[in-house]
Computed example of a mutant assay.
Amino acid sequence: METSNYQLILQKLETRASLKQQIYRNTVDVFASTKKALSKLGSRLHQDYTLSDPSVEIVYKDSHQFEAELKFSGDMIMLSMHSNVFNFEEGHRIYSSTYLKQDFSRSYCGVIYIHNFLADSIKYNRLADEGTLIARILVNKDKKFIVEGEGELGFLYEAFSEEEINEEQITKILEIAILNCINTDLRLPAYESVRDITLYQKQTILAASGYPTGKRLGYQFKAEMQNNNNI
């Protein structure tokens, strides 16, 4: 029994551990290409627009190995790569594809996230501010990909690609993500929902980080912050 279990461990290491290492390496490669594409896109936007209107700041920043960002006026696209490998939940529609039925191991994926934050959230370190997940790019062992996201990014790449992901495809994904950010305005909440605020909230939470803000929230006051304080 011990020998049998030991052999099973070796088999699992081959079918799971080595597989996940391969997917991790693929995701690292794709993330490097994604950062490169975002940097190029930022340079093009800076040249074609910012020079004609210097008040609109467009700046790319490579934060570290697993993160990069592009600031465009009041918005920011933040790229991040998860260091782990995932599989889909049981019953996910992806399992009905012939591609996965031929090889279940193709369903394991690395993940690259595209978030939208307000640029002022980062500038003023407003830790209570909320961002939005615009899309996530899922990369498998074959470097095939799907995208889950908002708007067009919710259906354009909903099945695994027939070819390996490339910089041209990545650029299109990033362009759609940026358009999504620009087209989503920061909206004021109803006046009645933000009318009341305690002195404690004013002197502590708001004084420390500014008005908690996000495109979905507008900004928060009494009811929302009381909920946050109770968490």
Rank of each mutant, 00 (worst) to 15 (best):
T3P: 07
N5K: 10
I9A: 05
L10K: 13
Q11M: 10
K12T: 14
Y24C: 07
Y24E: 07
D29N: 10
V59M: 01
K61I: 09
H64R: 10
H64W: 08
H64E: 09
H64F: 10
E67N: 04
E69S: 11
L70E: 01
F72A: 14
M76R: 12
M78H: 03
M81Y: 02
H82E: 09
E89Y: 13
Y95P: 03
T98R: 08
L100G: 04
K101I: 09
S107A: 15
I112F: 04
Y113L: 11
I114S: 08
I114N: 08
H115G: 04
A119P: 09
N125K: 08
R126F: 08
L133S: 12
I137D: 02
I137F: 03
V139L: 04
V139M: 02
K143R: 10
K144V: 02
K144Y: 06
I146V: 08
G151L: 10
L153G: 01
F155K: 07
L156V: 14
L156P: 13
E158N: 14
E164Y: 01
Q169L: 15
K172M: 13
I182F: 12
T184N: 11
R187Q: 12
L188K: 06
P189W: 06
A190C: 05
S193C: 01
I197M: 03
T198D: 10
Q201T: 07
T204W: 04
I205F: 15
L206C: 14
L206Y: 15
G210M: 05
Y211W: 07
T213W: 02
E224W: 07
I231K: 13
